[in-house]
Nucleic acid binder design. Structure first.
Lengths: 131, 131
DNA sequence: TTATATTCCTACCTAGTTGGTAGGTAATTA
DNA sequence: TAATTACCTACCAACTAGGTAGGAATATAA
């Protein structure tokens, strides 16, 4: 299940892409347009700025802007950065403890397959598809 | 994210399919073989018996058995019954409140597409694929 | 220089969910 | 009659989701 963090991040990215023609896009405006809590968005955005998807400029007249063209952002990239976990089962998580039953597990291949179709779908779309 | 309920249900179904040649399969044995809590499994199983995927027989010598051939169980069916929620975003849940922004929502089609690829994958495999 | 606007950082909180444990009842058979 | 099984319901601790809140750092405009 995709949580609000990832869903809001996507909406913010679309909003910025749609409005950055005017220059920097302040998050205050995004929050108002999208009807989301500014304070909550402020917690989500560092995942995007620290990884270089967005550039934030502080101070009066500041705001955010994209660092690439919209078609260069795959949705999977946005979600993997903002979503705590995208893996469909816990044993496929990054920091998952090694499973004792792994060798005899009859289901792991099935879950890996699910993980693959999900990521392939998410990476098949870019921000441009939402404008 | 698929929770233990759905994952354990799948393992139980595979275990029963693998062992029902000997007759009824008691959950006590399944729990031991799979190293899962019997008491927890007992909470999950009603979702499968009440919907006719399994038949439980009480009393000494009792146990469970499949009601169909393994290739007639799609994995999606098992998970949709045992998992509380399979939809990737809350607004696609069954009892989801109508979203005010639905008309103007630029992302809903994307999430519906994700929901589709997930369910198509889950329904493309049957129990037989795990034996 | 001062007021204002913005990003950025960190602490905290509440309701709900997850992943069970526990104890017992009803049904069936050896 | 004893044992074994499915079935039912209550409870609980730890964690997570989805925020609220307050302020610090930075930059600009007046």
């Amino acid at each position: 299940m995709i949580s609000t963090r990832g869903r809001y991040a996507l909406r913010v990215m679309i909003d910025i892409a749609s409005n950055e023609a005017d220059g920097l896009v302040p998050m205050r405006d995004v929050a108002k347009r999208q009807d989301l809590s500014l304070k909550y968005l402020e917690q989500i955005l560092p995942a995007l700025t620290k990884n270089g998807l967005l550039k934030g400029t502080q101070g009066k007249g500041g705001g955010y802007h994209l660092t690439r063209n919209p078609e260069e952002y795959r949705i999977g990239e946005i979600l993997r950065l903002t979503e705590k976990e995208l893996a469909p089962v816990s044993c496929l998580s990054e920091g998952a403890a090694a499973c004792e039953r792994r060798g005899a597990c009859k289901t792991i291949g099935f879950w890996e397959g699910l993980n693959n179709v999900v990521n392939e779908y998410l990476d098949s779309k870019t921000l441009k598809d939402f404008l």
